[in-house]
Design a protein around this nucleic acid. Structure first.
Lengths: 214, 214
DNA sequence: GTCTATAGGTTGATAGAC
DNA sequence: GTCTATCAACCTATAGAC
């Protein structure tokens, strides 16, 4: 790929992570050290540039998710999958994203998930629908006791937990001074897996309690 | 309060919930049926208008949260608080927000929490810091086995779960057709409380397992 | 491929009549 | 308090020289 094209992507990626999707092309090209017109030459429009950034951010995460999920499924002898393993495949590609020098990609990912309806629908259809379907099947094999509805809600809660941390990652150290260490992706992963796995299982338990009372 | 001032607030609230914070004053005044200059007359600037909207959305939620937390604390004989009760005080004022005719306030709340760093810092310092501190104390009395760090992470995960649902509430029915019913706030509350309560407790269990292995 | 120059449209804010 | 009219600044996109 052309060098200035990459410079534009890198600069836009960082600025969008910091300020949101409504950064001006002038700010982007200035940060990239290229000419304003270069954006419309290499990409066709600002929208196309944003699409390229979204794809470059999400697709590697999705590939890693599917790799890890495939491995989990290979290792399971019977039909049942280990819930923690499925959650690790789902969450850790996000939490352990781009360790050095590109921490802003985490904030970018949070931003992409937290954008107005019209936009998120496009992103979902293009980059997330297939992944969601695949993981819902995996969750069905990990916690078959749950109803399909309960699995969807649980997955949404898990996404929310990780996205919110990514979304606030830039400012969390300021909000809770010494109490949170955002830089330790692995520790965050373990906490998230423990928290969400217990959450998934709790819905089943809640329903069993209701039934035994009836 | 002046009538046109309220009309502006209502229109801006709805448009920001739907499209995000970068709605133009022209779009707002057109939707409100008032003159463009009215915004700068009644509020001083667009920023001040946004601050007013944020305050009007968050403050009633905070009041309700503190009311409910006070009640939970009054009812507890010993020093220990029921975790589910604290979580209900924390979450249900969000999930059961403005039931009829003002569903967009949920999306607005999600939007407010998912905004670039510079903005969220201002919102946090002004409207959320005191609440966070108060509830961290309550969580300390509900799950004293956790470290302060674990309580902060758990609270962040719980916020993320609810905010993500609010943030996507407008488009969730499209993404998961029949599987999710966003309109049933009470059912959502119960699921969230069960999920997050189990999550809080899981971190403690994880650590106890580690210690017993050592 | 990269630049300058500029078209054509939007924005927030305000001055001044009523 | 409410209006019209307008300013100055910003935006994206493109035409055309090099």
């Amino acid at each position: 790929m052309n060098e200035t094209k990459i410079r534009i992507l890198d600069a836009a990626e960082r600025l969008i992570a910091e300020q949101g999707l409504d950064v001006s092309l002038r700010a982007i090209t200035a940060a990239a050290g290229v000419n304003l017109a270069a954006v419309n030459y290499h990409f066709q429009s600002k929208d196309a540039l944003i699409d390229a950034i979204v794809a470059r951010a999400i697709e590697p995460v999705n590939r890693r998710r599917l790799e890890m999920l495939d491995a989990v499924e290979r290792e399971s002898a019977d039909g049942r999958l280990p819930l923690e393993g499925v959650l690790r495949a789902f969450l850790s590609p996000l939490t352990e994203l781009d360790p050095r020098g590109r921490e802003h990609v985490r904030a970018l990912m949070g931003r992409i998930y937290s954008v107005p309806d019209e936009f998120i629908r496009r992103v979902f259809d293009r980059h997330l629908a297939a992944i969601a379907e695949r993981f819902l099947e995996a969750f069905a094999r990990a916690v078959p006791e749950l109803t399909a509805e309960e699995r969807v809600w649980s997955m949404l809660f898990a996404i929310g937990a990780v996205i919110h941390v990514l979304n606030w990652s830039g400012t969390l150290p300021h909000l809770f001074k010494d109490l949170v260490d955002v830089s330790d992706g692995k520790a965050l992963t373990e906490r998230l897996i423990a928290f969400t796995a217990a959450g998934f299982r709790s819905l089943e338990h809640t329903r069993q309690l209701e039934q035994s009372h009836a």
